[in-house]
Simulated scan of single mutants.
Amino acid sequence: MRFSPDAPIGVFDSGVGGLSVLQHIRQTLPHESLIYFADSGFAPYGEKLESVIIERSFVITDFLLQHHIKALVVACNTATAAAIQLLRQRHPDLIIVGIEPGLKPAATLSQSGIIGVLATQSTLHSKKFQDLRDHLTQTTSVKVEQQACIGLASQIEKGELHSGATYSLVQKYVTPILNAGADAIVLGCTHYPFVIPLINDVIAQTAAPGRQIHIIDTGLAVAQQLKRRLIKTDLLMHNNDTADVTAWTTGSQSSLNMAFTQLLKMPATAIHTLATQHRPADK
């Protein structure tokens, strides 16, 4: 399959979380046109069966390919863990970049030898994450404290970034890993960067004065890897004054528009609503 340099890049997530990655892509690759797909009608992925996540990843990728994308970014830790290997097998000619928890950079920054991982249940239970964690603990002396953040992505998806309920969840999930001695916190879900201010509030209230806590967001690393892949395949756009961002959602058009405005401080050129057809059973 041949791809054109002026074709758009597709980015998808279970909802608005992937906007944290889209922001880094926009800053790193300002001349690229982007199509964002928010699967909000099926969110959150983190509490769904792996088979459901895989099917949604296939459906969305096929949809984006119909819009002639030249590269795909799976801007969702849960979908990356569940489906990226299968997507690469299915589309061997397509550049596919996923996201995974930044355990290695966290281990490098940690002084205590203990790092914490905030993620969804699906990510933490996935073989991909467990292999990554086990390799780290077997090859270094670093200990990994992991925390499934049930309900947190849903709060962020609703736009409740500063509510008392969201703060209570952040406090519930961050405090135990701080008490365990972690001095680096890995954000293992692309929704979580949007509540970094709340995480910092919990750190300020819980950590000892002067104790430095690193927060690891891997969105920038994804954008840089995407750029490298585009350069390698001669698909990088060097000059495009009409680069735009369009978006599709299986949820609320107004909610996604608000997310672009509030979270990214930028509008999408157009936001379209796609009916949630062929919804798989979620049992």
Rank of each mutant, 00 (worst) to 15 (best):
T166E: 06
L178M: 10
S51Q: 14
H162A: 15
A82W: 04
A83N: 06
Q138I: 10
T175Q: 15
V73H: 05
I54E: 07
P101W: 04
L65S: 07
V117S: 03
S141Q: 15
V170Y: 06
H135D: 14
S110A: 05
Q85F: 12
I115H: 06
F63A: 02
H68T: 13
A83K: 02
A165R: 14
E160C: 12
I53R: 05
T140M: 10
I84P: 00
A75Q: 02
S154R: 10
P176E: 08
L118A: 04
L152Y: 01
R90I: 10
R90N: 07
H162K: 14
G46V: 02
H68L: 13
D131E: 14
E100F: 01
P176G: 05
A180Y: 05
S57R: 07
E145F: 13
I54M: 12
L94A: 06
G102P: 02
L65C: 08
R88H: 11
S57D: 05
E47K: 06
P92T: 10
F58C: 10
T120F: 04
H68A: 14
T139R: 12
V117E: 01
S57E: 03
G159D: 06
L109C: 12
S163G: 13
Q85P: 03
Q138F: 11
G116D: 05
E160K: 13
K70N: 06
L65F: 09
K128R: 13
H67M: 12
I177G: 05
A75V: 07
T175H: 13
L49E: 10
I156E: 04
H67R: 15
F58G: 04
